[in-house]
Design a protein around this nucleic acid. Structure first.
Lengths: 215, 215
DNA sequence: GGAATGTCTTGACAGATGTCAAGGGCGGGC
DNA sequence: GCCCGCCCTTGACATCTGTCAAGACATTCC
């Protein structure tokens, strides 16, 4: 897995040996990124302007160019930041699941919960992923995160197969693709106000997992 | 299924009893929409401007406001237009498939072919669908098309189950969701230049179909 | 205390965008 | 031959955008 925790530096930064300054710089960067994430989650990639982002902070719009080279660096940094916790979200479930059925239930529940709670984060991710189909510059970040998400789903599916004592019958990529399709579909309906989206995601993801292992 | 062939009229049009004028109006609308689709497929929803669209025609940018009320109507019209043939694409396969295995092969091949040939159209669709998560105004069109795509996949999957002589074990919505996930994933990789995307879609969609029916 | 450096604000720039009003030219109908 | 209505062009508008230079304020260090 490639490194993701610390997005690539690009703007001129304080001397790297001056710890406290570096820290303050990073902290402020993080604060601005969080404000940006709020706006991005509401408006999406295309409709979000730097002024709109700054408006959600106590600062003026110029400060963003002090902490980020340009809009692309800011947004890339934001999406990476928002996915940091996401890609290890189910690892504790793996450890705590006592049986295959147990794992399926816990996983389905966790999936549904994050759809409900982190709705805006997820739709921002799908937005950026789609934009990457048009804008080549976004692809490295998207491919990187995508790989980590695939790896995460793989861990779940593999562990499920082990607990079941049966081999998988799909590739890692395919397992990720079908779960992603299910999640995206339900997310869209959830956002559109469909009350059934969450229970459907819960039921159907729990149903999908057993289908991926041999009988 | 709701009607899709003739996108909703909104701009002031010629008197509807004057056939030849109406026809000419519709033809020109279609020509402009085709030009718009070319640009939209290249640049995506957000980056496409009306001037850019007009630049691909023999007309000036003002003409778009003569045939379409605003940008949203134009784009909605375009996406509906581009999906018209799409939603019945596999119906002839249903008629010609002699066996379940045959159907699976034909379907996988057709899916792969349209990914290769209609790449830009598909990515535009995913773009608009994602934008609809942020912009409520786009949702009616998206929901409408989505339902038709789901119905199309349903026809394929149901017919496969009949040919196999076994019941389906997933809902229509779920069948659509997993195929859509597979397709979208492969489309992204295909666009990113991954040579394996097409063969993978072919193999994995043929593999996915049998998994949806009981053994 | 003063200089230097880090942090942030202000204001402006150049360009792009959706929209629309005004008008030109052309063809068909009287 | 003239007029009217359709089709399209032109040019302008207000607004929004990313970017950046210049400078103000604060903090740190000698």
């Amino acid at each position: 897995m490639t490194q993701l925790a610390s997005p690539s530096p690009s703007v001129d930064r304080p001397d790297r040996f001056d710890r406290s300054r570096v820290d303050r710089f990073e902290v402020r960067r993080g604060e601005l990124a969080d404000a940006a994430l709020e706006t991005l989650g509401e408006l999406g990639y295309a409709r979000t302007s730097l002024r709109e982002i700054a408006h959600k902070t106590e600062f003026s719009h110029g400060v963003l160019h002090y902490y980020f080279r340009d809009k692309n660096e800011l947004i890339t940094y934001c999406v990476r930041r928002s996915k940091e916790h996401c890609v290890t979200r189910y690892d504790e479930i793996l450890a705590s699941a006592a049986s295959a059925d147990d794992l399926a239930e816990l996983f389905a529940e966790a999936l549904t919960e994050t759809m409900r709670v982190d709705t805006s984060t997820h739709r921002l991710w799908y937005d950026m992923r789609t934009q990457a189909m048009f804008e080549e510059g976004l692809r490295p970040t998207v491919v990187d995160i995508d790989r980590q998400l695939e790896a995460m789903i793989s861990r779940v599916v593999n562990h499920y197969a082990v607990l079941r004592g049966r081999p998988l019958r799909v590739s890692q990529a395919m397992a990720y693709a079908v779960f992603d399709g299910l999640f995206e579909t339900c997310l869209m309906r959830h956002i559109a106000g469909d009350e059934c989206a969450a229970p459907r995601l819960r039921a159907e993801s729990a149903q999908l997992l057993p289908m991926l292992v041999a009988d």
